[in-house]
């Protein structure tokens, strides 16, 4: 290694191949196990949150629909969405505002339609 003192020791090709395969397997194993943990926790959370919501639905059934929330300051009328989920629409509006270099509350969106 020229004038540099090399850290560690030289390694055989067989050992290196084995280490590489083992390393890749360990990364996969770690993340597969983590995936299982995340799925289990997610399912437990869904189960937990669905039980009270069912009870709540029974209790709240007779009550009247809540009044429409007031618009945020700076809102300029409602926007019509055609086949576009609210989440996608929010993303589209953020991207448009970013590209135009203007704050989102200074741009008025009339409608957003998904192009199939």
């Amino acid at each position: 290694m020229g004038n540099i003192t090399a850290s560690g020791k030289p390694m055989g090709i067989g050992d290196a191949l084995l280490t590489a395969i083992l390393g890749y397997a360990v990364v996969f194993l770690g993340l597969v196990l983590l995936m299982a943990v995340v799925i289990i926790v997610g399912k437990a959370m869904t189960k937990k949150s669905s039980v009270p919501s069912e009870n709540a639905a029974v209790k709240e059934a007779p009550t009247a629909a809540p009044a429409e929330l007031p618009k945020a300051p700076g809102s300029a009328g409602g926007i019509k969405l055609y086949g576009t989920p609210e989440r996608d629409a929010a993303m589209v509006m953020a991207i448009v505002a970013d590209r135009m270099g203007k704050p989102i509350n200074e741009i008025r969106f009339i409608s957003i339609k998904e192009v199939k």
Binding site: A6, M11, I21, Y24
Partner: peptide, 18 residues
């Protein structure tokens, strides 16, 4: 990560360096 590690060993780097 692991392919480059293996090639680095082939090129003469130590295990730590690879």
């Amino acid at each position: 990560v692991f392919i480059a590690f293996f090639i680095a060993v082939l090129l003469g780097f130590t295990g730590n360096q690879a």
